[in-house]
Design a protein around this nucleic acid. Structure first.
Lengths: 205, 205
DNA sequence: TTGTTTTATAAACACTGTTTAGTTTATCTT
DNA sequence: AAGATAAACTAAACAGTGTTTATAAAACAA
């Protein structure tokens, strides 16, 4: 009796159909213009159908945010080639910022928007993707501690500090708070600030 | 002929009436639930009237964001009492985070939401409030450089680095990305990360 | 074949920001 | 003071939004 299995499979396919359509609209027009109706149009189904597969728009955004994490992990893969832990750490920071630059909507979904987080929150459900990503960072920081590149013994503390700095840079940029530096100055200034941070933690973290 | 002056005054009063009503709704219910209609209800005018005083909702949000900056400046006033430049810098960071904690909606408006920024942007109009605030930070950093507390010679670069770190901490918290650390652990961990950053730049910036 | 469950949708509900056309009120001119 | 002009205000509509409900159609189980 493989009917229930097939049904489950069809259900997953339908979910994927909705999500890929949503992602397409997302990347083409920005998340502001992604509505349940436009997704429904794209896949040639009625808007109400989408609610048979996702509880609400937040849950749909959460699923999209998970897909975005897959992309981030993919783009972080070359990191594995870097041997030296501290170099690896620096490269991760650079990639985080580059990802934000090149995929502003996805980055938004993953680290800025509240919508996808609102699906978890109430339950004791953790933010798995975020947790995993942070754990990778923490692992590299721990390596730095082990090799003596970082003197501070608490990897979690140090990781949060590093994440915050890099994230802040990206977030301020994406949300147009860097315009105070002028259009041509802001990008180099960001790089300079990043380099200064690297230099700073290299010397005394 | 003081009629035009009185008219101008009445116009400003009406603007203020709208803004204070908007702010009230904002702080009571969060910005998600502030609509043109709810503001209109609050002040007992028609929704269309609001458009006689503000081009659109973004412009209204921009005006609100300016009011929020007034509050920030007010809360930063005690900073002036701190003599030592580096202590002053640290205290500014702490206040930035505390402001974000205690006024999440206002902080959002000032440093995270894109809506208020969309009013400027197209023109060469700068983000004055942000510029002024950053300039204050840069001034303190320059003092630190002058007294030798900070060795790095470029105050702008150092200021952006510091702002980014502190902002990142606040932004990740407000957007619920700190939930990976658990409800009781996240706040102390933030303080630890901040202290670690302070220690780090004290030693080698 | 009948009964039941699943899947899909049309239509409505209660909102949203914004515009338009028309009315009331206030000021200026004759 | 009376009529013309300009400013202030609003009812109603437009074009959207997320979401729910009642209903119909299809798929499955008995």
């Amino acid at each position: 009796m493989g009917i229930t299995e097939r049904k489950e499979r069809e259900r997953e396919e339908m979910k994927k159909l909705i999500l890929t359509a949503a992602q397409k609209l997302f990347l083409d027009n920005g998340f502001e213009k992604v509505s349940i109706r436009s997704i429904a149009d794209e896949i040639e189904y009625s808007p109400a159908t989408i609610y048979l597969y996702f509880k609400d728009k937040n849950e749909l955004f959460f699923a999209l945010h998970q897909m975005a994490f897959d992309k981030l992990i993919l783009e972080f893969a070359p990191i594995a080639l870097v041997e030296e832990p501290f170099d690896k750490l620096v490269e991760m920071g650079r990639l985080y910022i580059r990802f934000a630059f090149e995929n502003p909507e996805l980055f938004d979904l993953m680290f800025i928007m509240t919508a996808p987080m609102d699906t978890l929150e109430c339950r004791e459900d953790v933010w798995e993707d975020g947790h995993r990503a942070f754990y990778v960072l923490q692992g590299v920081v721990q390596q730095c501690i082990d090799t003596g590149a970082i003197k501070h013994p608490d990897a979690e503390r140090a990781s949060l500090m590093i994440w915050s700095m890099v994230h802040g840079l990206a977030a301020l940029f994406l949300r147009k708070r860097m315009m105070i530096f002028g259009e041509e100055r802001k990008k180099p200034l960001m790089d300079e600030a990043f380099d200064l941070f690297v230099q700073c933690i290299r010397q005394s973290l």
